[in-house]
């Protein structure tokens, strides 16, 4: 096992940040921690990178215990904290060279690892890091975390606040790194990114809701989900919530996701009910569940 977490708990003053967390990440796996802000993702990353000590439980990274093997872990992992943590007053090239130097290596030695990524920011290599766009900053940060050829990469919310184009490119890079045998633990608040991981842990309020492959998590979803749409979304939501057999009602983009608790649900009945209450342009159709549906079902 590349990363192994056993019954980790951690609290700060009154807040229980992590509550009995356990999971394992296999070598070469791309593992996602999916959850909103305040779920405990960053705390978990800090415990695994030896920056914090857990109140209870144990964890190891590549066989090194996070307490006893502190120096071994620090010497070998790649870590990209949630906040952009490079030197804004150094240029792209200077940042990269600096991080290579403190890991006792050179940019040239491991250039093959970062080449795909670095060529995209190379035209700006003499620009100060502070003057880069959000997407480029993330690429540079990833290069810096990779430059010493780590076996495990910890990426704490690398795509938060980055535009869709850069997010997509970033995930494509992660896939390529995974092919080079690097184990990657990545966290994100975006549910749609979960599908890109091998396995994911859904996490909220310091507890793991489920761990599985994204496909399995979606497949386990019990209820049939209906996309419902009508002329007035506000009234539609109120009416759906008032429908006697309603199980869950969540706005979901241009539709509202509706699930029913009874076995004998008929779309026509619901249609008639909505029409009777004055709604127009009613659309009701079954739709496949998403990670987000699963997350809400589990969190509720």
């Amino acid at each position: 096992m590349s990363i192994s977490v056993r019954n980790i708990s951690k609290s700060f003053k009154k807040v229980q940040a992590l509550d009995q967390i356990s999971f394992e990440v296999a070598q070469g796996e791309l593992f996602g921690l999916i959850g909103p802000d305040g779920a405990g993702k960053t705390t978990l990353f800090r415990i695994l990178t030896t920056l914090l000590v857990a109140d209870e439980g144990s964890a190891s990274v590549f066989g090194f215990d996070v307490i006893d093997g502190m120096n071994d872990i620090r010497n070998s992992v790649g870590y990209m904290p949630g906040k952009f943590s490079l030197y804004q007053d150094l240029t792209v090239e200077e940042n990269l060279t600096f991080f290579a130097t403190i890991f006792d290596t050179t940019v040239a030695e491991n250039y093959h690892l970062i080449e795909d990524i670095y060529v995209q920011i190379e035209p700006f290599k003499n620009r100060r890091a502070g003057a880069l766009s959000g997407g480029m900053k993330q690429k540079l940060a990833l290069c810096c975390a990779l430059i010493h050829q780590p076996k495990v990469l910890f990426l704490d919310e690398p795509t938060t606040g980055v535009d869709p184009v850069s997010r997509k490119e970033f995930w494509e890079m992660l896939k390529r790194l995974q092919q080079k045998g690097i184990t990657i633990l990545v966290s994100t608040p975006y549910m749609d990114e979960a599908a890109l991981c091998d396995r994911i842990a859904l996490i909220q309020d310091g507890k793991i809701l489920d761990i599985n492959s994204p496909e399995e998590i979606v497949a386990k979803h019990q209820h049939v989900i209906y996309d419902v749409k009508a002329s007035n979304p506000h009234q539609l939501i109120s009416l759906l919530k008032a429908y006697p057999t309603a199980h869950s009602v969540y706005p979901f983009g241009e539709y509202v996701h509706y699930t029913d608790q009874s076995g004998e649900f008929k779309q026509e009945d619901l249609h008639a009910y909505l029409a009777h209450n004055g709604l127009k342009e009613i659309v009701i159709q079954p739709t496949p569940a998403t990670i987000e549906d699963a997350f809400m079902e589990l969190a509720n």
């Binding site: 909103p36 608040p189 549910m191 909220q204 969540y250 979901f252 809400m296 969190a299 509720n300």
Partner: peptide, 10 residues
């Protein structure tokens, strides 16, 4: 709603 959990976001 950046970073907010899915239910609260709804």
């Amino acid at each position: 709603t950046g970073g907010v959990d899915p239910i609260t976001r709804r």
